[in-house]
């Protein structure tokens, strides 16, 4: 599509669906007209509620039986033993006693998938950055069966409170929650086996959950986020143990915050290599977004897209640092 024609079409779509024009223009450049329309329509539908059953408090099947007795319809997510989509009927997902007991955590499917991709092992030292409100920290602890150590790091003082609440509610006992800037990890003197960086982002993938995001972020915000993500990754890579695993994720669909950031990191840090994610989900990351050629190994990263998967948009990339553990 010629640039002038694309700009005009972007304005029309932006008006029709309530977006800022720069967004629809990028979608048209990235996907073309048909897929852009499909994406915009999918973003009008909220994804199904999902929960993670917390086996730290009770065996999964026991909680499933208990919830079914209360009339909650659960359907297992194919690649997540502990993940379910849930129909709570006229009740809110947080209103059951089982939620207060920590038997389950209300969490999007992509957020659970990120931790599954990280694949934390019993006894390891794992770091979860930008960790509030704690869905991923508590999931990591669950997979590690409360062994080893999980450093859960968050900068925001208010969000820290939710993190600590959730750690306690879910029966996590292997976590150290620290408030501070993840760009200063040097001071901790810890070389983790695995690091999860679910980076602060523009949240462009969350439009199906929060339509306000159609108009709340500018291109400058995306650029700011990309700079911050790059700084965080630099700090994280320095801290990661040789042979260690890093999972980078965002709830943004913008290549500028995902594939571009990783491509730049691979250039700066030859010791980092993208590796295959074991679970089957999503679609491959882009290697030529907007016609720009990026590292071909980015095809091993994964994306969730609202119009293909009926979920919030997400990007997940798993990397390994060279060296022996």
């Amino acid at each position: 599509m010629a640039e002038k024609k694309r700009k005009q079409r972007a304005k029309e779509l932006a008006k029709e669906f309530g977006y800022l024009p720069y967004m629809t223009e990028r979608y048209l450049a990235l996907w073309g007209e048909e897929e852009t329309l499909s994406f915009l329509e999918a973003c009008e539908i909220a994804p199904k509620t999902a929960i993670r059953i917390n086996s730290l408090k009770m065996p999964i099947e026991q909680t499933v039986r208990r919830m079914k007795r209360k009339g909650i319809a659960l359907k297992r997510v194919p690649w997540l033993e502990e993940g379910f989509t849930a129909d709570f009927g006229d009740r809110t997902p947080g209103s059951l006693f089982e939620h207060l007991f920590g038997h389950y955590y209300v969490q999007g499917v992509p957020s659970m998938t990120v931790v599954k991709a990280l694949d934390p092992q019993k006894g390891e030292v794992v770091m979860d950055l930008a960790s509030a409100p704690g869905g991923k920290t508590t999931h990591i602890s669950q997979l590690m069966e409360n062994t080893g150590t999980v450093f859960s790091i968050e900068l925001d003082r208010l969000r820290m409170r939710s993190l600590v609440n959730n750690i306690q509610r879910c029966g996590v006992t292997n976590a150290i929650a620290l408030r501070g800037d993840a760009r200063k990890l040097d001071g901790l003197g810890v070389a983790p086996d695995r690091i999860l960086l679910d980076a602060p982002c523009s949240g462009e993938g969350l439009i199906p959950l929060d339509p306000a995001r159609k108009r709340s972020k500018t291109m400058a915000d995306i650029r700011y986020c990309a700079t911050r993500q790059d700084e965080l990754l630099d700090s994280v890579i320095k801290t990661l143990a040789p042979g260690g695993v890093l999972v980078y994720s965002t709830c943004s669909i913008a290549p500028e915050e995902n594939e571009y950031v990783i491509d730049s990191i691979l250039g700066k840090h030859p010791e980092m290599k993208i590796i295959q994610i074991d679970q089957e989900f999503g679609v491959p990351g882009y290697t030529q977004p907007y016609g720009v050629s990026l590292d071909v190994s980015l095809s091993q990263s994964r994306r969730f897209l609202p119009h293909i998967h009926g979920l919030e948009g997400f990007f997940i990339c798993k990397m390994r640092k060279e060296g022996d553990r």
Binding site: T149, I153, M160, L163, V164, I167, Q168, T173, N174, A175, I176, A177, L178, R179, G180, D181, K184, G187, L188, G189, V190
Partner: peptide, 24 residues
């Protein structure tokens, strides 16, 4: 906390403020 964590506690978590550890 686990006594294994002595190695972390000795570092004093420079630049970071502990909010929670182990079981309260």
């Amino acid at each position: 906390v686990s006594s294994d964590w002595m190695r972390f506690l000795q570092n004093k978590f420079t630049d970071f403020e502990p909010a929670h550890l182990g079981r309260r």
